[in-house]
Design a protein around this nucleic acid. Structure first.
Length: 481
RNA sequence: UCCCCCAUAGCUCAGUUGGUUAGAGCGAAUGACUGUUAAUCAUUAGGUCCCUGGUUCGAGCCCAGGUGGGGGAGCCA
């Protein structure tokens, strides 16, 4: 039998049984030309202005930045109902869509019916009809999606996420799901969150050590710090792949650029060298920025007006610029010859500090910079060793105001060199047998990189704190909501 | 983890050399008025001055410790 009977009764459930009118989204109504039509619209009241004959409600349903102005003839809607449609209340309104008499908007809704779905007591509702600080809203993260700012930010987050999939899909990349729980450590360093079913207060012990054989995975397991190694496995078969998912770092980082839980995009491509990798990364970043300018301009304009003057020009500037390719060794020379007094000394072999990166990007070049060929000792074991035997084919893309937005490399595909590097780093070979296998059998040159979703979002939104571009941020000591 | 700064009304903040009854703007409630635009005007309510201890005749203010928040650094995406 067909499954149709299951759906038939569903149609009669909910509000649709109360009214034959179709529910419209605010965003669609604001550009609608179909005047004198009866419509139904649901949303949250942003503000209300009451008068003797007419009252005005501004309604927002999250579909866009702009509100729908609802005009209420006080003779049609009972005053006690109108009073309950205060700031923060969820309401459903039926009325006539008309050309607005006011100057601030093209259309408005003349209310005929107003139903209160959920009240918001003005005495206690935390979000007031006024500007709030980002710090305060962080403590009200459960409600901040209702604000203009976070509505704009989260719609942009959605747009960037969608654009990521769109970009790779149209290029023929395969989206692979890499594991969240892992027993390997991609970086060979970095604090990880443990995943265990063992009781912490009464761990089974064997000769004084934790008896991992009794744990769920029969070995220590962690939340992933990167999907890269798994993505490499997939790339050496599927060709061009990417993974996009949550990533976890248990570092005690208290900065505006770090989260304990964040989202990372990691493309991995067979038969790519470092130059191909850079070209892809640059094209990819520009695509994401172009996408948001094309699809979320109202949100970006709002953020420019309220948070970062010149935001649009900054984004368009990146689109118009060719990213600088800069050898690490050359970067060190530029810094040493800059005549600048840095807090940390610049010397070949040390990693570039924030102040060094900022100087290169913001002072010296004034555009995004890709620094390549770092000393091998400050980079991970899987990066391809260059012919000089001193540097690896790494690349860091540095953005103004953000710092490192992408980190990547050509991967070491030569089994003997990879094994040597593994040993030099003091990593246990047996933990990586499956990784090494891909070099033993049909190894091929390949490359990839990681983009922090929140980092690019900070750049696109102009938000200065990474906690304001993720709905529910996890940082040391903070896992509320 | 290290360094610096902050904590006073629902929010943003002022508060004199330590001195009687702690203020403003915004928000809220109530009313007036108005096709309004974060409307306007009036009235009213609203405080464990973050917590604990100390100095002092007397602490919102000075000192110590704690808690919470912010900024910077390191680590990185």
């Amino acid at each position: 039998m067909a499954m149709m009977p299951i759906f038939a009764p569903l149609k009669k459930i909910g509000m649709s049984i109360m009214t034959p009118l179709k529910r419209h989204k605010v965003k669609a109504l604001l550009t609608s030309q179909e005047f004198e039509q009866s419509v139904r619209v649901c949303g949250w009241v942003k503000t209300q202005r009451t008068g003797k004959k007419f009252s005005f409600c501004e309604l927002n349903d999250g579909s866009g930045l702009h509100n729908l102005q609802v005009v209420v003839d006080n003779a049609l809607i009972a005053p006690e109902v109108l009073k309950r449609a205060a700031t923060g209340a969820a309401v459903c309104i039926e009325g006539l869509l008309v050309k607005s008499q006011g100057k601030e908007q093209a259309v408005e809704l003349q209310a005929q019916k107003l139903e209160i779905l959920g009240e918001a007591d003005g005495e206690t509702y935390p979000l007031q009809k006024k500007a709030h600080s980002l710090e305060f809203l962080r403590e009200q993260a459960h409600l901040r999606s209702r604000t203009n700012t976070f509505g704009a930010v989260f719609r942009l987050r959605n747009a960037v996420s969608y654009a990521i999939h769109h970009y790779f899909y149209q290029k023929g990349f395969v989206y692979v799901h890499t594991p969240i729980i892992t027993a390997s450590d991609t970086e060979g360093a970095g604090e990880m969150f443990a995943v265990t079913t063992l009781p912490l207060d009464n761990c089974p012990k064997l000769e004084g050590q934790v008896d991992w054989k009794q744990d769920f995975f029969e070995r220590p397991a962690h939340l992933t710090v990167s999907g890269q190694l798994n993505a490499e496995l997939a790339a050496l078969g599927l060709g061009e792949v990417y993974t996009f998912g949550p990533t976890f770092r248990a570092e005690n980082s208290n900065t505006t650029r770090h989260l304990a839980e964040f989202w990372m995009v990691e493309p991995e491509m067979a038969f790519y060298d470092l130059a191909d990798n850079m070209a892809l990364a640059e094209d990819f970043l520009k695509y994401l920025i172009r996408w948001t300018l094309d699809h979320n301009r109202a949100d970006i304009d709002f953020l420019q007006e309220n948070y970062e003057p010149g935001l649009v020009a900054k984004l368009e500037g990146v689109l118009a610029s060719d990213f600088i390719r800069l050898d690490y060794t050359e970067a060190v020379s530029i810094l040493q010859e800059s005549g600048r007094q840095f807090e940390y000394p610049v010397q070949w072999g040390s990693d570039l500090q924030s102040e060094h990166e900022r100087y290169l990007v913001e002072q010296h070049f004034g555009k995004p910079v890709i620094v390549i060929n770092y000393p091998k000792d400050i980079k991970a074991f899987y990066m391809r060793l260059n012919a000089d035997e001193k540097t690896v084919a790494a690349m860091d893309i540095l953005f103004p105001g953000i710092g490192e937005i992408i980190g990547g490399s050509q991967r070491e595909e030569r089994p003997d060199v990879l094994l040597r590097r593994l040993h030099e780093m003091g990593l246990p070979e047996e933990n990586y047998w499956w990784y090494l296998d891909t070099r033993r059998y049909g190894s091929a040159p390949h490359a990839g990189f990681g983009l922090g979703l929140e980092r690019i979002l900070m750049f696109i939104t102009g938000m200065g704190n990474i906690r304001d571009v993720i709905p529910f941020p996890r940082t040391p000591g903070n896992a509320e909501f």
